[in-house]
Each structure stands twice: as C-alpha cells, then as structure tokens.
Design a protein around this nucleic acid. Structure first.
Lengths: 158, 158
DNA sequence: ACTAGACCTAAAGCTGAATTTAACTACCAA
DNA sequence: TTGGTAGTTAAATTCAGCTTTAGGTCTAGT
C-alpha cells in the first residue's frame, strides 16, 4: 500500500520516500536537519538525498520523544554516540537503558500521584483542609511556581 | 518564614498573598483570571481581592495540570461544578475519580512502553530490523505524524 | 523539449501556558 | 502628606516543535 513508486538503485532516499517510510512530515525532517539531528547529501540541483541509516536515527528520535525527551536532549544523547563509526549494539543499549530508567521514574511518580489521589477520594478531596493534596496548597509554595505536588519526575510533563 | 506581613481581618487575599500561599506567580493568577478559571472582586482602586476559596480552585488547577490536563480541560471540569453553591465533597470526588482513571491509563501506557524497551535492550535496540521498536519505523506511518509507537494515553505528553 | 509533480528556501505562523515589559496607579504606615 | 511597596493594564515576548505560505526550482518520464 505504501509502496514507493520507483526505489532507486543508489539506495539514497528522497525526502518524500523518507516521509513515507518514517511517518514524519517533510517539514519535520527539514526541521530536524536544521536542528542538527539528521543530515543529508544533496543532488546537483540541491535536493536532499538521505542514507538509509537516517531511518534509524529517526526511530531513535521518535522513541526518545515518546519517552519524554526534548529534541535538545536527543541531540545530547546523539552527540555521545560515535560520529565516525556506525553505533554499535552496545551504544544503543546504553541509551535504551537510561530511557528505561527514566520511564521507571515517570511510572513511579505517576503511581505515587494516583495513590495520593486515591487516598483523597473518600474525603472529598481538595475541599478538606486535612487532605494531603489540598494541604499542598500552602506547602507547594516551597517548591516554586508550577511545582504543585507534582513529583520531580513529572515536572516536565504538563 | 513566608508569613504575610499583615493578614487583614476581612479575609480577602491580595494577589501577593495569594502568590505566596499558592506558589503561583501573580502573572499566572491574572492569566487564569483572563481564562475564566478564577475570579476576584476589586477594591475601589481596582486591585484584586481574592476569597480564600480561590486557593481550593488553584489547588484543583494545579492538581489537574499535573495529571496532564490542559487548562481548557480544567475549565470544562470546573464548569461542571455547581456555580451557585460551594462544591460538595461529592462534586470533587467525581472529578478526582476521573483523574485517577486518567492516571491509570498513563501508567499503563508507560509500563507498556518500558516493557517494549526492555525487550529491546538485549538486542541492541533500534539497530536491528527485527526489534519491535525499530520496526515501528515503517509501521508508524499508519498512525500519522508524530504518533510513533507512543500509546494513545501518552500522545499529549512530549 | 515539455511538463507534472516533487522539491527547495526563508520567513511567518501556530499552540498552550505563561512571563515580561512599560508605563502607570493604589495602598497604607509613619 | 509622603514615600515605598504592591498592584494595575495591554501588548509583546518566550518556548518547543513543528506547519504553513509564498514564490520559485529540480527531476524524471514521455
């Protein structure tokens, strides 16, 4: 169904092919290039041609984004990959592991939040001064603006 | 330490007192007012004076934001609260319960994502064509831009 | 050679949730 | 009455992560 009309023999992908294979809009691909996240060679006429390895980078970027990393963080992670050689299994593994850790923290934070909420449901949460969430009305001030009772791992989320 | 200089007897809070007690910036409080999330009476000179019930609303807003609700959604939830009477225990409870559900979904989605990731760590994730995440390179196209393999409940997150 | 359709750029625009700025006014204790 | 702190407004700006627009250029098939 999403079969490229004529996959050229040179193995380089046009931006259109890349949008179809990556699911990312061409505008996003150009944006990522401006951000230094991916790169492309150019034809004599100035059109982009992508190596297939770019697909792997894009998968990486999307996976990272879905774990909640900003593009800035993605770039940092990528900068830590060897620029010269193709990243090895171990390179990606190290990064995956740190994502897993991040997810663990996010999950933990959400669970804590839910449990807090559960403990309040029976009490008409937020309307009673003794409720743990409600109490953060005043406590929260010490965490700075926007902090609320939001656990550290979730601060970036809203 | 954060003791207001002179808590007036009328029980109304100035915006400064409210920033200290809520932990939200004055600019945020004015913004929330423009958005119709909170309201204030005015002095003869035009300065805002808040009733203490506003603290409850702010706690509500912050709790909602931390669960990932947009201000728009917060407003919808608030609109469903009785405008006339002070919301009862049951009013808040109904809303809390829906948050809990939302948290459950978010947690579930994150756990699924982590498990996916875990299953890839051993395989040098993203570098192998058979990896489940890596495969989403091509599969993801069917979910539309930005979707990646991100579960529904997390789509709003990045 | 022609042409449809894919591609190019720079710059502007969008969304949400505020913050910042500038110029000004109110409050209140001494 | 005065002065310093606190408050007011509208409008502009910020940030991320893109998308859209306008006005052109390239590529490839016939």
């Amino acid at each position: 169904m999403t079969s490229d009309p004529k996959p050229r023999a040179d193995q380089l992908l046009t931006i259109g092919e890349l949008t179809r294979r990556s699911g990312l809009a061409a505008s996003a691909l150009r944006f990522y290039e401006r951000q230094g996240l991916i790169s492309a060679t150019r034809t004599a006429g100035g059109q982009r041609r992508y190596e297939r390895a770019v697909l792997r980078r894009l998968a990486f970027i999307r996976a990272a984004r879905s774990v909640g990393l900003s593009l800035e963080e993605v770039r940092e992670a990528m900068d830590r990959l060897p620029a010269s050689r193709t990243p090895t299994r171990a390179d990606w593994t190290a990064i995956s592991r740190s994502w897993s850790k991040r997810l663990d923290e996010q999950i933990e934070a959400l669970v804590a939040l839910r449990d807090k909420l559960d403990s309040c449901i029976g009490c008409g949460c937020l309307s009673l001064a003794r409720c743990r969430i409600s109490n953060s009305e005043d406590e929260a001030a010490q965490w700075g603006p926007g902090a609320a009772f939001l656990p550290q791992a979730l601060r970036r989320q809203p």
